[in-house]
Design a protein around this nucleic acid. Structure first.
Length: 232
DNA sequence: TGCCAGGCCGGGT
DNA sequence: ACCCGGCATGGC
């Protein structure tokens, strides 16, 4: 995982190719930073369709703000987000986040935004229910901090092109991007969104024909069969 | 119909 | 330091 010039070039090539193919993604699909943070938790290992339905549900009930959600009994909250799956766990996670937001930043995302990236990331990772991807999604998409979000698609796409190993850790993959690209919020935002766009369409976990992937036409990049080496 | 979706945690090796 | 089962709905 060294910062060789070819890694930079490759990552930039991939970005250009993705952008040309899919166009701007306008992420994150949410109106307020709080909504985005909630969405990041609800979207954990769940289709966005199901998560967004839960968001709409909360919105319709006028509950999608820190105060209302804090006052809402956890059982009611769980029911309200039922469609997002894992609703009992996620209700608990939301409560943990709300408590953090309240105690540390007076319940305001605006206050949170003023804090520095490394401090925020550390705090978020300490919250039970918020792991690296959720933390980074909140940092990048809700708080506009320059961090790269790594998800299952990112790993799959890069590993299929032999840019990382299949067992690379989250931090390794993130370091690959952070070490080889300019730290731009706008750029990181678009890049990750494009990877998801690609993944949703063509790099499905068991999608056998990854050679349809638009990345296939990028120079040295070669699409490998979707070996899913880990049993299951 | 079974498998997957924008993970994470806790317990076991 | 890995590895695994559990968590749960809705779409194709």
């Amino acid at each position: 995982m060294k910062n060789s010039p070819s890694s930079q070039e490759t990552l930039e090539k991939i970005y250009k190719r993705l952008f040309a193919h899919f166009g701007p993604q306008h992420w994150w699909p949410g109106e307020t930073s709080f909504e985005i943070a909630v969405g990041a938790i609800l979207a954990q290992n769940t289709s966005w369709n199901n998560a967004s339905r839960a968001i709409e549900n909360l919105k319709k009930a006028r509950l999608l703000n820190p105060k209302s959600l804090r006052q809402l009994p956890i059982k009611k909250l769980a029911q309200g987000i039922r469609s997002s799956g894992y609703f009992n766990q996620k209700a608990r996670k939301l409560k943990m986040f709300l408590q953090y937001l309240q105690s540390r930043y007076g319940g305001r995302m605006g206050n949170m935004q003023k804090a520095a990236l490394p401090k925020l990331r550390e705090e978020l990772l300490k919250i039970n229910g918020i792991g690296p991807e959720t933390a980074d999604s909140i940092l990048l998409y809700a708080l506009h901090k320059p961090i790269f979000v790594v998800d299952a698609y990112t790993k799959r796409v890069l590993a299929r092109h032999s840019l990382i190993s299949w067992n690379a850790s989250y931090d390794e993959i993130q370091g690959f991007f952070l070490g080889n690209l300019p730290k731009s919020v706008r750029f990181f935002n678009e890049y990750h969104a494009l990877i998801v766009a690609l993944g949703k369409k063509l790099c499905h976990k068991t999608y056998p024909k990854c050679n349809l992937c638009p990345l296939a036409s990028i120079g040295k990049l070669q699409i490998e069969p979707s070996s899913r080496q880990k049993k299951k």
